[in-house]
């Protein structure tokens, strides 16, 4: 027997449109406006419709019918990831494993394989609270959008900052993610990076807190560059600018870490829910980041990133 809820959803009988290219998809969205939504894997949307968190629209615009939006390519200075690439494909991709293992860690923590086989990297991003987002923020990824007029590229961090104040344009279509390839240099000979997620249980759980950091140490052990971001749950991930500023040019030591911990507690703005308070989330995010920094200070390691090919 079909559930009552499904019968209700089916009675609305949404149509599914299969655009042949991005221009068609954008045109359909502009024409049908709020009566239509873009759908990639549809795993998140389906759960929102089932749970009643969102109404099923009159039309679905199926992005999987558009060629060229899937796949991962290594370019000279970045990896280009098609927005329609399933999470499981990203998880297994050799280039991502080599150049950005923290993205693999993030993807591995999202749902289970069966969901990741269908869900896409683009869907994780445009959900605005996807667990990959902190990684893209700290890795200075660029998001490439089809805006109907000309392609637009925006830094992941700027995009998420803007989301704090306003919703993105519903007609804009994420097409590609450009993930920079970080290399060690004479000035920054040691790079580091990490992603951590804390949920309500060990595996296959929605996040409570996610953190990511990416940076490099100078030869004298001072922090040459660093980006730190935190998100989790329904929190739109954001950079922790004050903590970054505090660390830049400094040796990582006990005093600095104590100050960084307090700065994160003050600067991270999580959304509480019935499962975890704001105070718990702040403290956990600060603990995760400081513990990672402590490991970095303790000794050389390739955690988070391997050297690029010369």
């Amino acid at each position: 027997m079909a559930s009552e809820h499904e019968n209700m959803l089916m009675s609305m009988s949404p149509s599914v449109l299969h655009p042949r290219d991005m221009t068609e998809a954008w045109t359909f969205k502009k024409l049908l406006d709020s009566d239509a939504v873009y759908v990639a894997g549809g795993t998140l949307l389906r759960t929102q419709w089932e749970s009643g968190q969102a109404a099923m629209p009159k039309h679905l615009i199926d992005l999987s019918s558009i060629p060229g939006l899937k796949g991962i390519e290594k370019e000279e200075h970045s990896l280009a990831i098609g927005a329609l690439t399933p999470l499981s494909e990203c998880r297994k991709d050799e280039h991502i494993r080599l150049h950005c293992p923290m993205l693999v860690d993030a993807i591995r923590s999202i749902a289970a394989i069966s969901v990741r086989n269908v869900a896409t990297i683009g869907g994780n991003i445009v959900s605005r609270v996807g667990d990959c987002l902190p990684v893209f923020i700290v890795c200075q990824a660029d998001f490439e959008w089809n805006t109907g007029l000309s392609p637009m590229t925006e830094d992941a961090s700027e995009w998420t900052e803007r989301l704090q104040a306003q919703l993105p344009k519903a007609s804009h279509l994420l097409t590609r993610i450009h993930l920079p390839l970080f290399k060690t240099t004479e000035i920054v000979p040691r790079r580091f990076g990490a992603f951590h997620k804390v949920g309500r249980r060990e595996a296959f759980t929605p996040s409570l807190i996610t953190v990511a950091l990416n940076g490099g140490l100078k030869a004298d052990g001072t922090v040459g560059e660093i980006r730190v971001a935190a998100g989790g749950g329904q929190t739109i991930p954001h950079r922790l600018f004050a903590a970054e500023k505090l660390m830049k040019g400094q040796q990582i030591n006990r005093e600095l870490l104590a100050a960084v911990h307090q700065t994160i507690v003050d600067g991270y703005k999580p959304k509480p829910d019935p499962f975890a308070t704001e105070a718990y989330r702040k403290k956990t995010a600060a603990n995760l980041i400081v513990a990672e920094l402590w490991k970095i200070a303790a000794g050389p390691s390739d955690e988070g990133r391997e050297r690029d090919d010369p």
Partner: peptide, 18 residues
């Protein structure tokens, strides 16, 4: 759980057109 083209997927999240 079912296999679609050999990959495990949740049939509750999969729509007919997919």
């Amino acid at each position: 759980m079912v296999l679609v083209d050999g990959q495990q997927v949740n049939s509750c999240l999969t729509m007919a057109y997919q």
